[in-house]
Design a protein around this nucleic acid. Structure first.
Length: 187
DNA sequence: TCGAATATATAAC
DNA sequence: GTTATATATTCGA
């Protein structure tokens, strides 16, 4: 059985989905609290077959810290049962991107001997936004690229993605990320 | 099993 | 700036 915890802080709602050992099954955040919880609820039904119950957890405070662009050295514990081995390899790389830096879909692909579109697929289906910093993956042009909120793409997503990076002290120079911010996964 | 759909990259114009 | 094409993975018919 799984559990949802959610709370609103400032203008955003933050939510997590936990399994019965308090491992993270998914996270979600956005403007609309209803959308956040229903996204987690649907994810739970899809992967576990069950509707979640409600709970509380300090993980929401960690999530808000990350949203605010604060560095955290905390280790989070994920339930990886419902993701593919390939997704797992991609998220391992993403978790190594330093705070305040970005990498590209292509560089991650090179590291994994895979392809950039495949990386895009995996990043787009990241169940753990904020905890796995998928906002730090951008196109090779160093423009902002796309970002999904509660499982759906919209121009709003790119705005949120940019704000997340700006709060990590990444300042854009004429709508692009400076090259010095680019991080290359070590081979 | 196969076709279609991607949060891509690169090269050419 | 705009295509055209190659590419890896996933998902559903």
């Amino acid at each position: 059985m799984s559990k949802i915890a959610a709370e609103t802080s400032g203008l955003k709602c933050f939510g997590v989905l936990l399994d019965n050992h308090d491992l993270l099954l998914a996270s979600s955040f956005g403007d609309n609290p209803k959308a956040v919880t229903s996204h987690l609820d649907q994810y739970s039904r899809k992967v576990t077959g069950y509707a979640p119950t409600l709970t509380k957890t300090a993980l929401l405070d960690d999530m808000i810290e990350i949203y605010d662009g604060r560095t955290t050295s905390k280790k989070f514990h994920f339930n990886t049962r419902y993701i593919s081995p390939y997704q797992s390899r991609v998220y391992d790389v993403l978790s190594k991107i330093p705070h305040g830096r970005v990498t590209t879909y292509g560089l991650v692909a090179k590291k994994l001997d895979s392809g950039p579109r495949a990386v895009g697929n995996a990043v787009a289906t990241n169940p753990w936004p904020l905890f796995i910093p998928c906002q730090r993956v951008v196109p090779s042009t160093l423009s902002i690229g796309d970002y999904s909120i509660c499982g759906s793409l919209s121009p709003q997503g790119s705005v949120v993605k940019r704000e997340l990076l700006e709060r990590e002290n990444i300042l854009f120079e004429n709508n692009a990320i400076p090259t010095r911010v680019l991080w290359t996964p070590t081979r």
